[in-house]
Design a protein around this nucleic acid. Structure first.
Lengths: 290, 290
DNA sequence: TCATTTAAGGAAAATAATTTTCATATTTAG
DNA sequence: CTAAATATGAAAATTATTTTCCTTAAATGA
């Protein structure tokens, strides 16, 4: 905890009643305080602005604005809410400031956890497969289709021959036409999505190499795939576990993509640049029929 | 470097003479600025306080004090983590382990920076608008359409009447049919995507409230919108700046969505649960024709 | 117990800081 | 070269903060 907050907590017993109310309010959500005026804060504590100023002076700040700036730079040092730095659930009527902190904690933890349980060798194997693939199929339903679509958008920019159907029939249809040298890449938060499992099974049967991206844990999809990749899973009871998971999965997508580009830099970077420039170029012709 | 300072440097050429003096003074020693009053700073730059306020507003801060607080938390942050806190670029032939670390650093920094420059009041205003909206339109091209799609998937699960066209003609068509009480939500990494700007302009002209989600800095889209929301921007020379930006934008989407659910918990949670259960239920009937 | 002292705290005045308005200068486009 | 648009500062208006002054409440001592 930051020195200022620590001091507030430590000195709290020595403070008077009104001052303690104030200290508690500040400790309850420091990041809110820095965006408040002195009057607003005083009102929320049921005290007068005068008391707030005196309080700041007592802690040797030049005044309330000085306190805010110092507090702002201190709380930036630590990640949101260190004591409950792990995953937070959604509850009713939470103020937005609490939601922001919880979400930051969730997403940071999600990325850190995912990174720490990555298997570099498997990741490398996936990159190698993808780089050499004649054709790449991407499967995913609902939330996971977003991840698949994201990968799709990246891959076409470097000229990889790939598809990303959200329609389960099309997925199966496409999977049926794969063969050795092709890669099927399936995304599923649960790893148990039947449509995705079917598509990957079908792709494997057709001779394609299979990669699965799921949450950590044993799942049918992970077992099925040649190369299983994992994002961090959330604690039980999380109402919306797929939010952080999606971020973590995109994190892995970025690593895979960057790995591919880095491996075949000479091939891929010019295509990447060219696709960007062409979008710019053709966009400026806009104005007439299109 | 922090997104704010980076934006100042980056936009410096576009600024007027007086504004540039100010930007240079801020860049020369940011940590001094946060302990100055507006008059003192203006004097040191040989300009008027009015120009300083206008400058802050142009960068979408609520005013000079707001700028100071945001700057304070950002520079504290970069002091704290000079190495792994900053963004890394892609280069050729990097081993995967290096890529993994760089990507983690990028994504963590991106989420932290984005959170620190969030404006809770604006965010709250956006949540309120979205909660009360009769209809919501989501606009975004390419990478940004992924973000729009993601929000779309979330919103339909809680029964919000919304659409997310990737087709620019459809976006305009839909925008034309909006009216007061509706909300148009546009996503663009650059904030300068013509198709997205057109769609949001059209929506605004139709009487809808407009929200824009772009990278930090002044952009046409941000200026256009009733409520501009910002994700952190990356430093110059980043080959693929939109990767981290996408994560940051999804982070904001998650906050908005969670804010909405939290605000109308009783309405939305049952729908969320039901949509989940129904997907499970109807999936198990699978096996015959579908 | 009761007066007296002392400190806490609020109301409101005073001050300081910031923002807005308005008038002027400067640049840009035609 | 003129007109419109933009940029800027001076000063007014507003807002925020701090100080002053006064009341209240608790503590101390006769």
């Amino acid at each position: 905890m930051s020195p200022i907050l620590h001091a507030l907590e430590h000195e709290s017993p020595k403070l008077s009643q009104m001052e303690r109310k104030l200290a508690e309010r500040i400790l309850s959500s420091p990041s809110e305080i820095v965006h408040m005026g002195i009057t607003e804060l005083a009102e929320q504590c049921g005290i007068s602005p005068a008391t707030v100023t005196r309080f700041c002076k007592a802690f040797h700040f030049k005044g309330f604005p000085d306190f805010k700036v110092k507090l702002a730079s201190e709380i930036a040092h630590s990640d949101a809410t260190p004591q409950d730095g792990s995953y937070q659930d959604i509850v009713a009527g939470n103020p937005l400031s609490v939601i922001v902190e919880a979400m930051q904690a969730n997403h940071l933890a999600s990325i850190r956890d995912t990174t720490s349980l990555l298997d570099i060798d498997r990741l490398q194997a996936a990159v190698d497969l993808l780089c050499r693939a004649r054709r790449v199929d991407l499967y995913g339903m609902a939330t996971s289709s977003i991840v698949a679509q994201d990968f799709y958008q990246k891959l076409i920019r470097i000229g990889v021959n790939c598809t990303a159907f959200a329609d389960s029939h099309m997925q199966i249809t496409s999977a049926s036409t794969l063969s050795a040298g092709d890669v099927a890449f399936a995304v599923s938060y649960s790893g148990e999505t039947p449509e995705t499992i079917d598509a990957l099974t079908c792709a494997g049967a057709s001779g394609a190499s299979t990669i699965a991206l799921t949450s950590y844990g044993s799942s049918r999809l992970a077992t099925l795939a040649d190369i299983p990749l994992f994002s961090s899973s959330l604690e039980q009871g999380m109402r919306r576990g797929d939010m952080a998971s999606r971020i973590a999965q995109l994190h892995i997508i970025d690593i895979l993509f960057t790995g591919m580009v880095s491996t075949r830099f000479g091939d891929f970077i010019p295509k990447l640049e060219q696709s960007y420039l062409n979008v710019q170029h053709y966009r400026h012709k806009r104005g007439g029929q299109s």
